[in-house]
Amino acid sequence: MQYVFLYAGLYLCILMLLSLYRAVFGPTVLDRLVGVNAIGSKTVVLLILIGLIYGRVDMFVDISMAYAMLNFIAVLAASRYFQKRKGL
C-alpha cells in the first residue's frame, strides 16, 4: 500500500512539472499566477501523501493546512497587486 502512495506522489510531481511550464513560459503575468495556483493546490495533496509514506500523517496534516492558507493568501495578494496594470 505504501507503493501506491509513492507512485501517486510521483505522478503528482510530474503534473506539477506541467503546471511549472505554464508558470515559467506563460505569456502574461496572470498566466504565471494560474500556474502557481495549480502547483500550490497539488502541493497540499502531495504533503499529505508524503506524510502517509513516512507514517506521520498527524504532523504533516498541520503543515498541509498551513500551506493551503499560505497559498490562498499568496494568490490573493499577488492578484490584488497586479490589478490596474495595463498590458500584463
Binding site: L30, N37, L76, S79, Q83, G87
Partner: peptide, 16 residues
C-alpha cells in the same frame, strides 16, 4: 473560488 474570482477580476481590470 475566491482565488479564481480574484485572478479573473485582476485580468478584467487590466483590460484583457
Amino acid at each position: 473560488p475566491t482565488a479564481t474570482h480574484s485572478i479573473v477580476d485582476a485580468g478584467i481590470r487590466a483590460g484583457m
